[in-house]
Design a protein around this nucleic acid. Structure first.
Length: 153
DNA sequence: GCCAACGTTGGC
DNA sequence: GCCAACGTTGGC
């Protein structure tokens, strides 16, 4: 089993939005970065778990745990000219962008803020979120980092 | 709103 | 293939 971190802007889609879904699950659309897509395509497996991270907000940080509940499949929002994530270069016959389905495992009891994680930098070496210029919205997390972060809760 | 970092695009 | 211009991300 592999661990991941997935970023979302809470104003777009928050952990509470996920918690409010009937079946606690949604499709993770809008990935438009090749490296992130390749992680979904080549690395994600059903049953993997992900830290749900809030970005571009007042208190950026880890807010919950989600489970990957599908393999990667074509992101249909790329074909919809009315969609924010429309990409004219993604051909339905040969889709450029993919998505997966995720399901809420649980909300954390509290937000583990980015600022708090930085205070533990010595234990977090190699954790991509804290690395300079990190912009990837989706990346693998080592088990030792996963365990350490959740032990902060 | 600012700006550093980084990915993508497109002319040559 | 190089690289300047441009767009996006995301913390602060």
């Amino acid at each position: 089993m592999q661990y991941w971190l997935m970023k979302s802007e809470p104003e777009e889609y928050s952990i509470d939005d996920l918690a409010a879904e009937d079946d606690l699950s949604t499709y993770w659309d809008g990935i438009r970065n090749y490296q992130a897509r390749n992680f979904m395509r080549d690395g994600m497996k059903i049953g993997d778990q992900a830290l749900f991270y809030h970005s571009s907000c007042k208190v950026p940080g880890v807010t919950g745990i989600a489970e990957i509940v599908s393999e990667a499949y074509p992101d249909h929002t790329a074909f919809d000219a009315g969609d924010k994530h429309f990409d004219a270069k993604s051909d339905p016959e040969n889709p450029r962008w993919l998505m997966v389905d995720i399901k809420l495992v649980r909300k954390l009891n509290r937000i583990i803020a980015l600022s708090e994680l930085r205070e533990h930098a010595s234990q977090m070496d190699g954790f991509r979120l804290l690395q300079r210029g990190n912009r990837l919205s989706l990346f693998p997390v080592e088990k030792r980092h996963w365990d350490y972060i959740l032990n902060l809760e």
